[in-house]
Amino acid sequence: MTELLGIPPQVLFGQMLIGLINGSFYALLSLGLAIIFGLLNIINFSHGAQYMLGAFAAWLGLQYFGVNYWVALVLAPVCVAAFGILLERTLLRRLYREDHLYGLLLTFGLALIIEGSFVHWFGVSGQPYAVPESLQGGQNLGFMFLPTYRGWIIVASLVVCFGTWYMIERTRLGAYLRAGTENPQLMQAFGINVPLLITLTYGYGVALAALAGVLAAPIYQVSPVMGSNLLITVFAVVVIGGMGSILGSILTGLLMGLIEGLTKVFYPEASSTVIFLVMIIILLVRPAGLFGKEA
């Protein structure tokens, strides 16, 4: 096959694949942030720590209890979500009447506690997590080689993202959620249990982060600090997309991953900064974000 712009196609498509995978994680995480923000009006700063907890839950499960990948894929998000719900019920709940910035500060403190504890127990170096047997190997697509596990990440996160979108936009529960985002007092007056809805929403957002963590475990090292740097990038993605739209969060996440991948091919020096640069451009051109509404 001929070269495109002086780049061998294997390299180009390979980096685009990596970009799409990162984009899948951005999408899952920014989706969770957007859902939580919609109803709770807080930015969940422990999102990165909860993503890390998902990966660690899978690793610990395999290491000490022989829990395989497929079970972990369900069990880890459930456990981490239960932990998240506990935090919401005992701590976050006390802050809903205060300035929203306190929610951010509280979750930041929680992130420090969680991350610090895991660094103390496991050190900063990563632990390897094997790719499950049924997803090893890969396919030759002609123009590139696609490792099965990487394909699986993209498919799985797309299914979860669009499933979530469908649930929120097309089901009764989702209608409650959207109504609660608009006007929680009125919802409560109609006899809907808003505090329960808030708890479940937080739990679901956290579960999405933990799921991303389990998906990431086999391709990245499972490390206590894997979440924090990723989270800052996801914040930039959220600023670019705006948190007003579910579909917008998903698309922005994927798009930013792809842009990052392409930057790795054409100008590798900027690959770690390109998303922040896009954020600056968006702030200059369209401050409310790609899918945001002007306040």
């Binding site: 807080i42 930015i43 800052i232 990038t233």
Partner: peptide, 23 residues
């Protein structure tokens, strides 16, 4: 750049810009 958005977005933008500077 940051004063173009308010509240929580302001915090996120400053954090992201600082990360850019870090890199």
């Amino acid at each position: 750049l940051a004063i173009r958005r308010q509240g929580i977005y302001f915090a996120m933008i400053t954090l992201a810009l600082a990360q850019l500077v870090f890199f």
